[in-house]
C-alpha cells in the first residue's frame, strides 16, 4: 500500500523526504556516471513505465488474497541500484501527482520505503551473496530472488519503525511488527519467485541487459565475405556506374 497523507506526522514526513531527496541526488550522479550516461532519460523512463506496469500485475498469494510486485530488487538487479532508485522515485512521483496514489506529503516516505529500502536491501543481499558464492551466471536469478525475498519484509520493518516514531495512532509495536512481517514475508516469497524467474527469462534472451550479470563483451574477430553481386537477367541501367 502507498502511504497516504496524514499517516505519519509532519516531522517524520519531512525527515523521510530529506533522506529520499539525498538518495535521489546521489543516484542521479551515479546513474549518469556509472550506469547509463546519456541514455539515462529514455532508458530509465521506459524502465519506470515497466515498473509501473508490473506494479499493476497482481499475483495470487493464498486464500483469495493477492499481492503486487514492488519491483525494487528486480529493477536493481536489472539496471543497477542508482538507476533503479531513480525509476522507482519517478514511479511514485507520477503515481502521487497523476493518480493520487500515495499522498503528496508522504511522497518522501513512499520513495524511501518502497524505493530506496527495497533497492538497497535487495541489491545489497544480491551483491553480498555474489561475493561469497562462486561467480556463475546461472546463480544470478537465485541471488536476485533472495534479494527480493529479504527486501519486502525489510521495507515492512522500516515502516514499523517509522510508525513507532511518527505514527499518528498508538499501536503496540509487537502487534504491528508481527502483523506486517507475517503478511510481507508471504508477499516477499511471491516477489522472490517472480523476480528470480523473470531474471532467468531475461538472461536467456538478452544476458547483456542484466546489470547484475554484466561481463565484458567478448571480442570476436569479424568475418568479411564477399559474395558475387548478381545482376538480374535483363541488363539493368542504374544511374551512375556501379563498381
Amino acid at each position: 500500500m502507498h502511504v497516504p497523507d496524514g499517516f505519519f506526522d509532519a516531522p517524520t514526513s519531512a525527515a523521510t523526504a530529506v533522506v529520499a531527496a539525498s538518495a535521489i541526488g546521489t543516484s542521479l550522479y551515479l546513474a549518469r556516471r556509472r550506469e547509463l550516461d546519456d541514455r539515462t532519460a529514455p532508458l530509465a523512463g521506459l524502465v519506470a513505465a515497466f515498473v509501473f506496469a508490473t506494479q499493476m500485475l497482481n499475483f495470487p498469494v493464498a486464500g483469495g488474497t493477492s499481492g503486487h510486485l514492488m519491483g525494487g530488487a528486480l529493477a536493481a538487479v536489472l539496471v543497477g541500484p542508482a538507476t533503479a532508485i531513480l525509476c522507482l522515485s519517478v514511479v511514485f512521483l507520477v503515481q502521487a501527482l497523476l493518480f493520487a496514489d500515495g499522498g503528496i506529503t508522504a511522497l518522501g516516505t513512499n520513495i524511501l520505503l518502497m524505493g530506496v529500502v527495497t533497492v538497497l536491501v535487495g541489491y545489497g543481499v544480491f551483491r553480498v551473496l555474489q561475493a561469497v558464492l562462486p561467480k556463475r551466471a546461472s546463480l544470478v536469478p537465485l541471488l536476485a530472488g533472495l534479494g527480493a525475498l529479504v527486501s519486502v519484509p525489510a521495507a515492512a520493518l522500516v515502516f514499523v519503525g517509522l510508525f513507532e516514531v511518527g505514527g499518528t495512532v498508538d499501536v503496540p509495536l509487537g502487534t504491528l511488527a508481527s502483523a506486517m512481517l507475517g503478511v510481507h514475508v508471504l508477499i516477499g516469497i511471491g516477489e522472490a519467485v517472480i523476480t528470480a524467474a523473470a531474471v532467468a527469462a531475461i538472461l536467456k534472451v538478452r544476458p547483456d541487459l542484466v546489470h547484475g550479470a554484466r561481463r565484458l563483451p567478448t571480442a570476436t574477430p569479424l568475418v568479411v565475405r564477399t559474395s558475387p553481386v548478381a545482376t538480374p537477367a535483363a541488363p539493368a541501367a542504374p544511374t551512375g556506374g556501379e563498381a
Partner: peptide, 30 residues
C-alpha cells in the same frame, strides 16, 4: 488465469518479456 502460486512462473515470464520489450524500446528511442 493466474489463480494460485503455481502460476507465478508464467507471470514471471511475462514480466521478463515485458522488461526486454521496454528496455529495447528505450534503446531504440535513444
Amino acid at each position: 488465469t493466474a489463480r494460485d502460486p503455481r502460476h507465478w512462473g508464467v507471470l514471471a515470464r511475462s514480466v521478463g518479456a515485458l522488461f526486454i520489450r521496454s528496455y529495447e524500446r528505450g534503446e531504440r528511442v535513444h
